[in-house]
């Protein structure tokens, strides 16, 4: 512990660390992340002086000094590979997101009474709990996050509000921002006879 500065009675101000906007690492660690090229661009745009510090010729040379050439080459190769992999992954995720559907189901509970189940929102990075609360407030009814038969989370809203929810998704109201409205499907489910509750 000899290397830390002696603590005085005055408050020590926190160190401000700049985190990369792309990979969230402290900027000096971007080179080990999987988006190096993007990180570099980001830093170049937002903090040109720091960019000079980390990616100028001298800085690169200083790095080489501590590592054998072969190891450095290998590292670079690995980074490139990782980057390609991450990109492919992001693309696949995006594709999946575009393909995933939101199902709005109107379930008949008791003849003229309905509940509406919204399923598939989580694929679009929507906070289900918050959305349920939002629905409850908008419609002045109960809304909750429950697990359905497949063990997946869905939002159940009391009352028939399927039409309104579709509209809200189209408008991107509240937490429902950025959901493509083409992916929304409406279905109706009739209760089988003999169901109790």
């Amino acid at each position: 512990m000899a290397d830390t500065e002696p603590t005085s009675s005055a408050q020590i101000q926190p160190v401000e660390v700049l985190y990369c906007g792309v990979c969230t690492f402290p900027v000096e660690y971007c080179e080990f992340g999987s988006h190096l090229t993007k990180c570099k661009e980001w830093l170049h745009e937002t903090h040109p002086d720091l960019y000079e510090k980390y990616y100028s010729e001298e800085a690169l040379h200083a790095k080489l000094g501590t590592l054998s050439l072969e190891a450095q080459e290998k590292l670079e190769k690995d980074t490139a590979k990782k980057e390609a992999k991450a990109e492919a992954k992001a693309e696949a995720a995006q594709k999946k997101k575009m393909a995933s559907q939101i199902t709005i189901k109107r379930i008949e509970r008791n003849k003229r009474k309905f509940v509406t189940a919204v399923h598939g929102l989580e694929a679009f990075d929507v906070d289900l709990k918050k959305t349920a609360k939002f629905f409850a407030q908008k419609f002045a009814t109960g809304a909750s996050v429950t697990k359905n038969a497949q063990g997946l989370d869905e939002i159940v809203v009391q009352g028939d509000v399927s039409g309104d929810i579709v509209e809200m998704i189209e408008d991107g109201a509240g937490p429902l921002k950025g959901i493509p409205s083409d992916n929304v499907v409406e279905v109706e489910e009739k209760k089988k006879k003999g169901g109790g509750d």
Partner: peptide, 25 residues
């Protein structure tokens, strides 16, 4: 870690060489 970045003196330090960073991450 974020707290440690702000107040780096709270813990004693050890250092690793450049070759190890990749594995650590």
């Amino acid at each position: 870690l974020r707290l440690l970045h702000k107040y780096p003196f709270v813990l004693p330090k050890v250092g690793v060489d450049r070759g190890a960073i990749r594995f650590l991450l």
